[in-house]
């Protein structure tokens, strides 16, 4: 659905250069710190900025050749932008109806009611959660084949976040040929949703892995200085010095659990992995 090869964009000292792929039927997560380049990637894919180099294709078509008709097949949500806040949900309905041939008005109204979005209230009076829900609702209400969602869960409480992820799961269940690219700086949000995760740091993809593999095979090993000296480092990806000794990241949890029963081994999570990839040193 999406394929980028060395997609480049320069802003002063910041250089984005990344390659990644989002496959049909998959939910792909893009995680990274604030300022890592996630929004730049999304803006480039959506044609809001012009790449300085590389290639980006959506549905096999170069993004620079995209027409409004092509854009009808994409549902997008941006973290820092949405419909004018002087509009109401009721105002948005005819706009979407005019813009998208496949806009499902009944679904939009029904889901809006379910999510507790008032029809006649101006968006500027909405809470953060309501604004986020509206953005997602707009993105899923016109039978798009692909969703591109930048930080849709930012600033949400646990309940609102769960409701939002539920909408996305339902969207995927409706049609197996759909796909989602979603970003978050809180990667924990994405673990329960994504099939695979790309980690981005300083504009570069530093890791790509299936979420299941991150959760099952990656681990954080905590060892003392003595234990560290005797530790087999062939499967250690990153090391970080701590006051008590060392914290290590591995993608072979079973190996260390079996051979180093005295070491403290914590299950991997996207958050832990990205923290170690960024802050740790190569072993």
């Amino acid at each position: 659905m999406i394929k980028t090869e060395n997609l480049q964009k320069r802003y002063g000292n910041f250089n984005l250069n990344c390659s990644f792929e989002v496959k049909k039927g998959c939910i792909t997560g893009l995680v990274g710190q604030n300022g890592a380049g996630k929004t730049t990637v999304f803006k480039a894919l959506l044609g809001l900025i012009y790449p300085d180099g590389g290639k980006a294709e959506i549905f096999g078509k170069n993004i620079t050749d995209f027409t409004p008709e092509d854009k009808e097949k994409i549902g997008a949500a941006l973290s820092d932008s949405g419909f004018s806040e002087y509009l109401t949900v009721k105002d948005i309905i005819p706009i979407l109806k005019a813009l998208y041939k496949s806009f499902d008005e009944k679904f939009f109204i029904r889901q809006g009611e379910k999510l507790g979005l008032p029809l006649n209230k101006k968006i500027k009076e909405f809470s953060t959660g309501m604004k986020a829900k509206l953005k997602i609702l707009v993105a899923v209400s016109h039978k798009a084949s692909l969703l591109i969602l930048d930080e849709p869960t930012a600033g949400l409480d646990v309940v609102a976040r769960d409701e939002l992820l539920e909408i996305l799961r339902e969207y995927m269940e409706e049609d197996e040929n759909r796909a989602i690219l979603i970003s978050s700086h809180i990667s924990g949000d994405l673990e329960s949703l994504c099939d695979d995760i790309y980690m981005i740091h300083n504009g570069k993809i530093v890791l790509h892995e299936d979420t299941d593999v991150i959760l099952s095979d990656y681990a954080i090993i905590k060892v003392t200085e003595e234990q560290f000296k005797s530790l087999d480092k062939q499967y250690i990806l990153r090391v970080k010095k701590e006051p008590f000794g060392y914290v290590c990241l591995t993608d072979q949890k079973a190996f260390y659990a079996e051979n180093y029963p005295e070491a403290v081994i914590e299950n991997g999570s996207a958050d832990k992995v990205i923290t170690m990839i960024i802050r740790g040193q190569e072993a």
Partner: peptide
């Protein structure tokens, strides 16, 4: 000005709208 307020114009161009349009 309304479109620019809250960076709304960025979102507008994710809709099926061309810059020329």
């Amino acid at each position: 000005s309304y479109d620019e307020f809250n960076n709304s114009s960025a979102f507008l161009f994710t809709l099926p709208v061309s810059r020329t349009g």
